[in-house]
């Protein structure tokens, strides 16, 4: 029951992009085509889950034990940066096809604040490891959902006549705003 609650909250109610404003850069940057958006979503899911597990273990077994919680930010970002590199190297060796699909997005992920944000939130919300994994997975799905929907909208937007000044970023932001409004409708779910 608790897990279902976490999943629904993370995907719909507190959607990481449209409600928490994490990962806006890729949300605006790689959302021009559905196929790239889906690739990005896959890469983020992959890294987010692994990063959450690793940072959780480090927090509990190193930072908490030594009482140096103030090193959290610096440790987590380094772990994530190293992890992204590692995932890239391993993926290249183990599964070249997957690497081809996700590879180009991996370097962009280090500075995706959604990864660091979810890792910190898992600690702040005092989840246990299993809840943390579920939370990370659901957040990533929420990210992917928002990204793919938004990319779909933008593909259609290309075919529309948009007022000159609104072209590009302004109209994208307004569309995102309306999408966020639609997601607000989920807030009665839990």
């Amino acid at each position: 029951m608790n897990y279902i609650f976490i999943i629904i909250t993370a995907i719909f109610v507190n959607n990481i992009v449209l409600n928490q404003f994490l990962g806006i850069c890729p949300f605006l940057g790689v959302s021009k085509k559905i196929s790239t958006a889906a690739g990005m979503a896959g890469a983020v899911t992959f890294v987010m889950v692994i990063a959450t597990i690793v940072t959780y273990l480090i927090q509990k077994s190193v930072l908490d034990v030594l009482g140096i919680g103030f090193m959290q930010t610096i440790t987590f970002i380094l772990v994530i940066a190293a992890l992204v590199q590692l995932v890239e190297i391993i993926l290249k060796k183990v599964s070249p096809s997957l690497y081809q699909a996700l590879g180009v997005f991996l370097p962009l992920i280090t500075t995706n604040c959604a990864i660091l944000g979810v890792a910190i939130m898992t600690i702040q919300k005092e989840y246990n490891l299993m809840e943390g994994v579920v939370f990370a997975m659901a957040s990533a799905i929420g990210f992917g959902l928002a990204l793919v929907i938004f990319a779909g909208l933008r593909e259609h937007l290309d075919l529309m006549t948009v007022p000159k000044g609104m072209k590009g970023v302004p109209i994208a932001l307004v569309v995102a705003g309306i999408l966020a409004m639609a997601f607000m409708g989920f807030s009665g779910l839990v």
Binding site: L18, N19, F21, G165, M166, V169, P170, I171, A172, L173, V174, A176, G177, I178, A180, M181, F183, M184
Partner: peptide, 15 residues
């Protein structure tokens, strides 16, 4: 003040 407003206001400000 809620989430959608952030996107809307920024969009129009850039415009």
């Amino acid at each position: 003040v809620l989430a959608p407003g952030a996107f809307l206001v920024l969009g129009y400000l850039i415009l």
